[in-house]
């Protein structure tokens, strides 16, 4: 074990893992994150907390993770390189480890253009692959990027993201291999709606033997409505929403679209479980966390296994 992470224990013993995520509030009220955590606590093995997603300012992922941790939840600290240089990043890694956070998801982050502070200066001192390397070096070699020794190594289970749907398609697996070589131990993918394309990507992953080196958790986001599906298809970069899914939602009355969205997610999870090399799912129910218990129940993922 490289960490005390519950998620790492579950994945390393071969259980099918379930993670989900909470978006922190746009304010200082801890109850928002506590409520979200309480809703999904028993349905998942670990909960990601997003780091100012879409570049909209929110409560920090770091402090939200601590709040979840206090509730007995295993949090996954999402960290983007958009807002911190290598000094702040390493400092936060030490601080998070000191407060008992033991999962980290290394990301580059959404460009500030998409958020509420479009005039901000981005940092990008490091990219996401550098961030993975940084955590690994600090954990395994006990050294800062600058070369000095660390007194008290931070122990993290290291994660990264992968988007099987972005271009250039044939390079996406090469990039995954780079993330694995850098030190990624688990991967949470972009939301999967195009299962055929995902299966093609997984074939490339298996051809390179990457499925034996890294735990891949397939991303699932339930559609609340036809409007959301259209928005995701047209407006969200790197998202692949096939026409047949749009047609399926169109085919049911408006008030039933949310149910249909949940049904699609449950079916997706069931199909993902059948794919060799997929070791779990990451359910991102955006501002719809209350649906996670139902989805996991329907998909036969409950009860979650106990960990010593």
């Amino acid at each position: 074990m490289t960490s005390d992470s519950r998620l790492e224990k579950i994945l390393s013993r071969g259980d099918f893992a379930v993670t989900s995520e909470c978006g922190p509030p746009r304010g200082a009220d801890p109850e928002v994150i506590q409520k979200k955590g309480a809703l999904i606590k028993d349905s998942v093995d670990a909960i990601n907390v997003t780091d100012n997603q879409t570049s909209v300012v929110r409560m920090s992922s770091f402090s939200s993770c601590v709040i979840l941790k206090q509730m007995g939840i295993n949090p996954v600290l999402q960290m983007v390189t958009r807002d911190r240089n290598r000094i702040a990043i390493q400092s936060d890694i030490l601080g998070a480890a000191a407060l008992g956070i033991n999962n980290i998801l290394c990301l580059s982050g959404d460009h500030q253009k998409f958020g509420d502070h479009g005039k901000a200066k981005n940092v990008y001192d490091l990219d996401s692959i550098h961030l993975i390397q940084t955590v690994k070096q600090m954990r395994d070699e006990g050294k800062f990027l600058g070369g000095d020794d660390i007194k008290g190594k931070p122990r993290f289970f290291i994660g990264a993201a992968a988007n099987p749907f972005a271009d250039p398609f044939e390079f996406r697996v090469v990039r995954l291999a780079k993330k694995v070589a850098a030190g990624a131990q688990f991967i949470q993918t972009q939301c999967i709606y195009n299962l055929d394309r995902f299966k093609q990507w997984m074939q490339l992953v298996r051809d390179r033997g990457l499925h034996e080196k890294v735990h891949i958790l397939g991303g699932v986001t339930p559609m609340k409505s036809l409007g959301m599906a259209n928005y995701m298809k047209k407006m969200v970069p790197g998202m692949d929403v096939p026409d047949n899914l749009i047609a399926r939602l169109k085919g049911v009355p408006k008030e039933k679209q949310a149910d249909e969205g949940i049904k699609i997610s449950v079916e997706t999870i069931q199909q993902l479980r059948e794919i060799k090399g997929v070791h779990g799912v990451h359910i991102m129910a955006i501002e719809w966390e209350e649906m996670v218990p139902g989805i996991t129940q329907e998909a036969g993922l409950l009860p979650r296994p106990k960990v010593e």
């Binding site: 460009h111 972005a166 271009d167």
Partner: peptide, 20 residues
């Protein structure tokens, strides 16, 4: 690259376009 990535691309490109 809008994110100055040395090990890109990020996950936002689609149909050869920059998301930013």
């Amino acid at each position: 690259c809008a994110k100055h990535m040395l090990n890109g691309p990020c996950g936002g490109s689609r149909e050869d376009r920059c998301e930013v």
